[in-house]
């Protein structure tokens, strides 16, 4: 920290998620859920300890190797959508496929957008879409390339109840079809209940929920 003190966000965390499993991490705001998700996905590096993703030790890899591991195999859904504002819905969804040089990127992206009910919004920019629609584009992007693992950070946090419900249904529907492992961070008990396993994060420590 700027005043020189150390702030421990997460401590003594030991967890394993098996292939095809859906795991929810529940916890109040500020408990370190998003930080944990970032570490598990290799978006950040822990100061101590290690993370293994898809059989690879993330700590032994450099940032490029981690990015290469994510490309095409890991999907993300964020609370604040994280769509690129200059790209249309179609371009946003095609982006991860273009990154792995998939030649049919646009066709696949179009199919995915149709699947989430946005076939009429292909050429719209994010700012021309509602919050629910933006999150559906984000979902389509996350499942482009059928990822092995999907990380979702409060995917319904910015949405009303109806839109949230629709996103959850879509998320689990797409996940079932792709057979992806799901790691979901939320404070919504109902959403967590749809997962195979629920972990609670409290004061930086993780416990298996009963």
């Amino acid at each position: 920290m700027s005043d020189g003190r150390t702030l421990n966000i997460l401590a003594a965390i030991d967890m394993q998620v098996n292939a095809g499993e859906a795991v929810a991490i529940l916890g109040p705001s500020g408990s370190g859920k998003s930080t944990l998700l970032g570490l598990l996905a290799g978006l950040d590096q822990p100061t101590e300890g290690g993370v293994s993703l898809l059989g690879h030790d993330l700590g032994a890899m450099d940032e490029d190797a981690r990015a290469a591991l994510r490309a095409g195999r890991v999907g993300f859904v964020f609370q604040s959508f994280q769509l690129l504002p200059g790209m249309t819905a179609l371009e946003n969804v095609a982006l991860p496929l273009q990154i792995v040089r998939n030649s049919g990127a646009r066709v696949q992206a179009e199919a995915l957008l149709r699947e989430v009910g946005l076939e009429k919004r292909l050429s719209h920019l994010p700012r021309q879409l509602s919050g629910g629609e933006q999150q559906r584009v984000a979902l389509a992007r996350a499942f482009a390339g059928d990822p092995d693992v999907l990380f979702a950070d409060e995917p319904t946090g910015n949405l009303d109840a109806d839109s949230g419900q629709r996103i959850i249904d879509l998320l689990f529907g797409l996940r079932d079809r792709a057979g992806s492992t799901l790691l979901l961070v939320t404070h919504d008990q109902q959403l967590a209940a749809r997962c195979d396993r629920v972990l609670r994060l409290h004061a930086g420590r993780l416990q298996e929920a009963a």
């Binding site: 996905a41 978006l43 990015a67 290469a68 490309a71 769509l83 504002p85 982006l95 991860p96």
Partner: peptide, 19 residues
């Protein structure tokens, strides 16, 4: 600002530094 966000999203989606 726009570039920072693009870079972060693209890296999350697996784009390499070189790319």
């Amino acid at each position: 600002d726009e570039r920072a966000r693009e870079v972060a999203v693209m890296r999350t989606l697996g784009a390499s530094r070189r790319r």
